[in-house]
Design a protein around this nucleic acid. Structure first.
Length: 629
DNA sequence: ATAACGGATTGGCGCGCAGC
DNA sequence: GCTGCGCGCCAATCCGTTAT
């Protein structure tokens, strides 16, 4: 069905471009008026278009190029057949996993081969050598190695960090996650280069149809998952439907929208009280960042966004330098062709408004100023427009609300396609990992959320705190901002599976009193398995009670304990819980003390946190491995 | 719900430089 | 050589998102 011209050139095109040609051609052939003549013209045009843009894609993702075998880095692991990073691998979940497994096995071999010499820094040097090698291998398959912090005062800290980073690279799941992200980037960038994103009829606004469809499918899968899971509390055994929880938290777009509106309205109230005035900024990048423009240099929306945020950072630095006090909200929004632009809703003192505006303008027009010269006169409006808020024409919040809704779910907007537009905007932000909303100059929302979780009784001990709680409860953001000074978020530190120290919010602190609003541990269990989980949990509780009576437990030695100095209390408890042999449970102790979560059966796993044995529901897939066998 | 992670923002610290 | 200052970088922190 292809033309001779197409037959000749198609094999030279990257697979992802070939796919697009086929897709376009089959769509066109289904039209009522498809004749042999106009199909021939269409096919030839499509292939010519593909030939024009293929090099751009190949430049960004060399593995897409079918003609250059050299760029196909083979990953050998010795034991298995090699896997190549190419189109087919990247598009297939199983192949990605095989590639990741091969990489980890390759890294393991590198670690085994390394020789540690004598001397104080010998181990550190060995770790460094291994990490440099791993990083190089990762880069050849287009992954970035985990970041390292630059300076360490202690040798042991430097060693620890390298150990943890290497530990990450040996985790197949970590690598698979990275490849999956690479895949979405690769697909959408190819679509952008092939001009599938835009406001023409054949294009889709903000992001391509292909990426949008993939994203929607993923959303549906996620929704199915949410429906099938329950949330269980370790302490009390209470269970909730995950769907219910999702509905009432910020995971629900409508809640997210309302919270942003509340915060914006509060900011405006605060501005009015302070005598500040509102400034609305519409900030666009030079045309070389736009796919729609002739001058496009091949950058992605993400890269463009980074440039825009760097400019915004520069402007903020100037505000600070000149002592300009301000606060407000920044919104990232796509143009039709996927290039980001920004809206800023800022409040400043009238005396400082002119300075603030001129800083923003000068930063915005600095790059490619010549584009803005029309007949010898400078016209900055294509790049940056400033609107001064006039209270006589309506509230600032009324104006901001439209932008919030437009980019979240389209609620309460008159436009008929607002819901689809908002969904596309959301998908665009997710695909490119662009943060849509960012509030500045206000206390953390995390704190607001924790205070709202507290009950009246929790805060009754202090009249001032009770007032603050009341403000949060009644959605009075401006009063919260004024009265929050004595409160701050409270955290608990934990060790994750890679041995890294991570923090988890447990509630908030009022002076030196901690109010726990997120103090309980929950996990997810398939709703169908909740009963099994409860039974297992009960068995563990009884075993722990017995063990505790018999042996006092040590909480020492969380890291690198000598293998058999572990308290026999743990062994005893583990034997009772699992029914395994002494040898079997001894295998569990070292990983437990290192902070790992160890699966016991289909429904239950164990971990050791803060000196206590914790029970967890096994997550997701039921591919539980039995470490004793 | 939680963990992990990426991104944005803020504050602090160190470095270099000028002025003493 | 000391001090103060500005700048840029880094670390800590918080926010938002995804995967489970």
């Amino acid at each position: 069905m292809l033309t001779p011209f197409a037959h000749h050139f198609m094999p030279k095109l990257p697979r992802i471009v070939q796919d697009d040609v086929h897709f376009q051609v089959s769509g066109r052939s289904r039209r009522a008026n498809a004749t042999r003549e106009n199909m021939t013209l269409f096919i030839n045009d499509t292939v010519k278009h593909a030939l024009k843009w293929a090099p751009v894609i190949e430049h960004k993702f060399p593995f897409a190029d079918l003609r250059v075998n050299a760029s196909h880095q083979r990953v050998h692991s010795g034991a298995r057949s090699s896997v190549t990073l190419n189109h087919e691998t990247l598009m297939c979940d199983d192949a990605i996993e095989r590639l990741a497994v091969n990489l980890t096995e390759m890294f393991t071999r590198q670690i085994q081969m390394i020789q540690v010499e004598d001397g104080e820094t010998a181990y550190l040097n060995a770790l460094k050598t291994v990490f440099v090698g791993i990083s190089k291998d990762l880069r050849t398959v287009h992954l970035t190695p985990p970041p390292l912090k630059k300076k360490h005062t202690l040798l042991a800290e430097a060693e620890d960090e390298l150990e943890r980073a290497i530990c990450r690279c040996l985790d197949v799941k970590y690598l698979v996650r990275k490849f999956t992200f690479l895949r979405t980037q690769y697909i959408e960038y190819s679509q952008i280069a092939l001009a599938r994103v835009g406001d023409r009829k054949s294009q889709h606004a903000y992001l391509s149809r292909r990426s949008f469809a993939r994203w929607e499918k993923k959303q549906q899968e996620a929704a199915r998952f949410v429906k099938a899971m329950s949330v269980v509390c370790h302490e009390t055994g209470e269970t909730f439907d995950l769907a219910e929880v999702v509905k009432r938290t910020t995971a629900n777009p409508e809640n997210r929208r309302i919270e942003l509106v509340v915060r914006s309205r509060g900011d405006e109230e605060r501005a009015v009280e302070m005598g500040y005035e509102g400034v609305f900024v519409n900030w666009t990048l030079p045309s070389k960042y736009h796919r729609n423009a002739d001058k496009w240099t091949g950058c992605t929306p993400k890269e463009a966004h980074e440039v825009l945020m760097a400019k915004w950072r520069l402007a903020r630095a100037w505000f600070q330098k000149l002592d300009i006090h301000w606060f407000g909200l920044r919104v990232a929004e796509p143009h039709k062709d996927g290039t980001p632009h920004a809206h800023m809703f800022l409040y400043v003192h009238p005396d400082q408004k002119a300075a603030l505006v001129s800083i923003i303008e000068s930063v915005a027009i600095d790059e490619d100023k010549h584009e803005l010269m029309i007949n010898g006169a400078l016209n900055i409006s294509p790049r940056i427009t400033i609107k001064h808020c006039d209270p006589a024409l309506g509230t600032a919040t009324g104006y901001i609300i439209k932008y919030i809704s437009k980019n979240i779910n389209g609620a309460h907007l008159p436009e008929g396609d607002a819901a689809h537009t908002a969904l596309s905007a959301t998908a665009w932000a997710r695909i490119h990992r662009i943060k849509q909303f960012s509030q500045s100059g206000s206390p953390p929302v995390g704190l607001w959320r924790q205070i709202r979780r507290a009950s009246k009784e929790d805060v009754a001990f202090d009249a001032q705190l009770a007032d603050l709680h009341e403000h949060c409860d009644k959605s009075r953001w401006s009063r919260f901002c004024q009265d929050v000074q004595d409160a701050q978020l409270a955290y608990e530190t934990r060790i994750n599976g890679y041995g890294e120290t991570v923090k988890k919010v447990r509630g908030f602190m009022w002076h030196d009193i901690i109010i726990e609003t997120a103090g309980k541990d929950y996990s997810l269990v398939p709703t169908a398995k909740v009963d099994t989980w409860k039974a297992a949990r009960h068995a563990v509780a009884i075993a722990l009670k017995k063990a505790r009576r018999a042996f006092p437990w040590s909480t020492e030695n969380k890291c690198n304990p000598p293998p058999y100095s572990a308290p026999t209390g743990i062994e005893h408890a583990l034997i009772t819980v699992t029914g395994w042999s002494l040898k079997g449970v001894q295998c569990l102790i070292s990983p437990l003390l290192r902070g790992a979560t160890v699966p016991i059966d289909n429904a239950l796993s164990l971990s050791w946190r803060d000196g206590e044995l914790q029970t967890h529901a096994v997550r997701g897939a039921q591919t539980t491995k039995d470490p004793s066998r």
